[in-house]
Amino acid sequence: MNLLEVKGLCKSYPGFQLENVSFAVREGSIMGFIGRNGAGKTTTLKSILHIVHPDAGEIRYFGMDFAGHEGEIKQQIGFAGGAVDYYKRKPIKKLLEVTKRFYETWDDEACRKYLALFSLDENKMPGELSEGMRVKLSLTLALSHGARLLLLDEPTSGLDPVSREELLDTFRYLRERGVAILFSTHITSDLEKCADDITYIAKGKLIASEPMAAFMARCRETGVGNTLDEIMVHYEKENLYEKAAE
């Protein structure tokens, strides 16, 4: 069953266009969402969450349209957009207390578990934490209400290698329990360790959205590259000197 279906998503900004992006995230799977900086990953995620308004396209969660089921859908999804960037001067404890009231399925025990796992002191304020620790706080908020679908924008950026590995273990643990995860990143080695599917966009256009194994096999066979890094470089490397001379 698809927990998230995106069809023909389009969004235009001056100087940038997201064109006809389509993909689906299956229950109990991890989808890596890759593309270089400025490719449109964050715009796609924001459009999916209706933080920005798509010009065209259809977005369905759990078989439901976002419009008309906004509250119901948000109860079942978790979003972490990198480091916590709000209420940096409020104690984490207070932030958690206020946030949890909104979720019917908030799990205090899970919250405590993730706070301990990530070594987060709830008496501190987000502003007192490093970038990496604020990413962990953001994930704690997203993981504590038993979300069925996690949308994570660069969740491993700013994390040390040990924390990244622990986080990937958490993703695998959640996947076994049927949670679907869509996470954008340009740390491609993270995806090679855990992604089942991959969606790749470049300059706002969809390059691929398919099972990771099939994508890698196709790229290997066609000589595009053996790793995600090589594949991205193959598709997107520009000669900056030639570009500057144009």
Partner: peptide, 13 residues
């Protein structure tokens, strides 16, 4: 405090 982004991500309209 970036309250609006925090609020729109909560399970509310």
């Amino acid at each position: 405090a970036n309250d609006i982004l925090y609020t729109v991500l909560l399970p509310v309209k």
